[in-house]
Amino acid sequence: MQYMLLIYDNEKQSNSMTPGDSKKLMEEYYAFTEDVKKSGHLVAGDALQRTETATTVRVRDGKRLTTDGPFAETKEQLAGYYLVEAKDLDEAIAIAARIPSVRKGSIEVRPIQKFD
C-alpha cells in the first residue's frame, strides 16, 4: 500500500527559526530521508517552497482564474510530503511519527487511491 504523508507546519514559526535550529532540522530531515530510503519505504519526497510562492488556478465557465497565494488560509500550511510504501496504516503512522516536523506541526496520512 502507498500512503502520502503530508507535512503541515506553521510557516511563520519556521521562518523565525534561528540559523542554528534551521540547520539542525535540515540534518534531522536528511537523516530521516536516508533512513526510509534504506528501509525501502520511500517512494518519493520533497519539501515545498513557502506559500507566498503559491498560485491558485481555477477554470470557471471556460475562463481561467489565477490568484496569488494558497487555496485556503489556515494555521498550518502544506510544507512538504513523503510518498511511502507501507504494509498497513499502523506502519504508515509509525513512519509519519518520525518525520521531524511532527513535533511542531502535524502529518496527514492519506492512502493512495488505486484504480483498477
Binding site: 500500500m1 504494509k87 498497513d88 496504516l89 499502523d90 496520512v109 492512502p111
Partner: peptide, 10 residues
C-alpha cells in the same frame, strides 16, 4: 478497508 487499518493485535 481503504486506509488498510490492520486486523491484528498491536
Amino acid at each position: 478497508r481503504a486506509a488498510a487499518i490492520p486486523y491484528r493485535v498491536p
